[in-house]
């Protein structure tokens, strides 16, 4: 194999990497605890928001959906971004859902944006970044919702693709639908509600911001848990590599010492 010097250098670099991945794992663990607490309230908020849509479902499935994909800018978190990108591709290409294949896509997070621009580049209409560095606030969600509405893209309903938190070690890409103002007005269940002035537009916009907020918070928690798992695996792998390299190094060192001894002894016995 390589010389002793090379093994030594490799050993030093793997040891450094192990330290880094271990500390990243610790950071992700503490962030996960905070993120999970925020997610509990965020989920309740999202459920309260979805009550109206439960009671007033759209009469016919939407043709032109606006897909909002939620991921983040940072990597080293396992399959978070690819799971959401795959779910989006499945959603658009699914022949049964009747969705228009040219439906616009808006992406939050640079990692998914890169993956989707390769597969569905012509559908991408808007992208957001610098969201997800810390626990998402309602202000982030409201800003995103505001830009979506201002962009003037036409849609019958909005499908939010995000990672649902199943447990501390597993997550799943899920789609949640938010109806647009027109779909709400035409829904039969919605007519049961009495309103003073027409609050339907405000209701639709507010619900969009709420749904985006709930999805952002849950995705954030999934990302932290995935990062912790990924860094945990990386630390374990690094630990194994260190063990192997250490063995190699010791054997090499002992072989060198033995060779020197043999030289000395043959030299001495030749005298």
């Amino acid at each position: 194999m390589a010389t002793l010097r090379e093994i030594e250098l490799r050993l030093k670099s793997v040891r450094n990497i192990e330290k880094i991945t271990k500390s990243m794992k610790m950071i992700a663990s503490t962030k996960l605890a905070k993120a999970q607490r925020a997610m509990v309230s965020g989920k309740e908020y999202g459920i309260a928001n979805a009550e109206v849509f439960k009671n007033a479902p759209a009469d016919e499935p939407a043709k032109r959906k606006l897909i909002v994909v939620i991921s983040s800018d940072k990597g080293l978190c396992g399959g978070i971004h690819s799971s959401v990108s795959k779910a989006t591709r499945r959603l658009i290409n699914d022949p049964e859902s009747g969705i228009d294949p040219s439906s616009p896509i808006m992406v939050i997070g640079d990692k998914s944006k890169a993956q989707l621009s390769r597969a569905l580049g012509q559908n991408l209409s808007l992208s957001f970044n610098q969201i997800g560095r810390d626990i998402p606030t309602f202000a982030d969600a409201a800003g995103v919702a505001d830009l979506i509405i201002k962009s003037g893209v036409e849609y019958d309903s909005i499908a939010i693709v995000y990672n649902k938190f199943i447990s501390a070690i597993s997550y799943e890409a899920t789609v949640v639908e938010v109806e647009s103002e027109e779909a709400l007005k035409e829904s039969a269940g919605f007519k049961a509600y009495e309103m003073e002035d027409d609050v339907t537009k405000d209701l639709a916009e507010f619900s969009l911001a709420n749904a985006i907020f709930a999805a952002l918070v849950e995705s954030h928690a999934c990302e932290q848990s995935a990062r912790r798992t990924a860094m945990d695996n990386a630390s374990k792998n690094a630990g194994e590599m260190i063990g192997r390299l250490q063995m190699q190094y010791n054997r090499g060192r002992q072989a060198a010492i033995t060779n020197e001894l043999v030289d000395i002894i043959t030299g001495a016995s030749a005298l």
Binding site: A38, V40, S41, G42, E44, Y45, I47, A48, N49, E51, T137, F138, A141, A192, N210, F213
Partner: peptide
């Protein structure tokens, strides 16, 4: 309303804030 309120008699309140329920 045309539907009958067969649910329990008390009003059930859900007050949710983004960071707290």
């Amino acid at each position: 309303a045309t539907e009958a309120a067969t649910a329990s008699e008390a009003l059930k309140l859900s007050l949710a804030l983004p960071h707290q329920t």
